[in-house]
């Protein structure tokens, strides 16, 4: 495949006071470069969707935003990622605290093999966010409520989380992330393992969460991106091709590749 030599980067309309930014971000897995000079702003209290064909680097980019790539051997990162104008790769940044501020929901629901209650309570416990059992109870209830799960599980909080259905497990994972009061929630294809009904519920939930949290979601479903996001970024071969208002990307993309992808001509 020929390499795109021209700088196809669409000049991004700069956003006033973004929650998070990426500047000239390059990422290498050993010798393979996975991200090329990515510049992206994440707007506060909006849903930003990252779309693109498999292997285009959108999940990799997402994992840069809470430094989950640190856990992989042989990853090198250059450039800058900021949260509230502070570089999160600065050596004075505490990764543990950072990941509490930037929560993450994964592709496959991954509840701990513990009770529903303990799953949600785990984050507040390890970060020492609560002083009493009552406070913890309240956080757990609020989080489950926010994740739209409370009605379904309130009678069996002590039963194992692994006994829930896939969709419920994924909402539990969202509740678990919400319980530590993050500012940003990163979601890596949160609906790819769910059926359409569960997907609809999670999408609804994402829409509601937007009023309190900044959300970045990776998705393979164009419809999902169109439904839940306000801004969309299109990645291709490790490059950010185009970013803009979701409406604009889907109705009037500026780049030929974006157009090709969203109309289903490749990918």
């Amino acid at each position: 495949m020929a390499v795109v030599t021209q700088s196809a980067m669409t000049a991004e309309p700069s956003v006033a006071s973004p929650k998070m930014t990426a500047r000239d971000l390059n990422l290498f897995y050993s010798d393979n470069q996975a991200l090329y000079d990515v510049n992206l702003d994440i707007v506060e209290r909006q849903v930003t969707a990252l779309i693109g064909p498999s292997g285009c680097g959108k999940s990799t980019f997402l994992r840069c935003m809470n430094r989950m790539n640190d856990t992989i051997d042989g990853v090198t990162i250059t450039g800058k990622v900021t949260l509230d104008d502070r570089d999160i790769y600065d050596k004075h940044i505490d990764v543990v605290q950072l990941r509490a501020r930037i929560g993450m929901v994964f592709q496959k629901p991954n509840p701990f093999p513990k009770s529903i209650y303990d799953n949600v309570a785990y984050g507040p416990r390890i970060h020492g966010l609560v002083n009493s059992r009552d406070e913890l109870d309240e956080i757990v209830m609020t989080s489950l409520e926010r994740a739209g799960l409370l009605k379904e599980v309130k009678d069996r909080l002590q039963s194992p989380a692994t006994g829930l259905s896939g969709g419920q497990q994924q909402r539990l994972c969202i509740a678990r992330a919400v319980a530590v009061s993050p500012e940003v929630i990163l979601m890596d294809e949160p609906c790819s393992a769910l059926d359409p009904i569960a997907t609809a519920k999670v999408e609804e939930l994402i829409d509601e969460l937007r009023s309190n949290y900044t959300i970045v979601i990776v998705t393979h479903s164009m419809q999902q991106a169109a439904r839940v996001s306000q801004r969309t970024a299109f990645f291709h071969l490790g490059k950010l091709v185009e970013v803009g208002e979701t409406d604009q990307i889907f109705t009037n993309p500026k780049d030929e590749r974006t157009k090709g992808y969203i109309t289903g001509r490749f990918g």
Partner: peptide, 27 residues
Amino acid sequence: VPPSIRQAALGLGASPVQTVTHHVLPL
């Protein structure tokens, strides 16, 4: 122990040692 459990714990802000003692080791 599935890596997804480690990721879940790390993603919540558990330190590597907490991840091991709270999740990996019991499993």
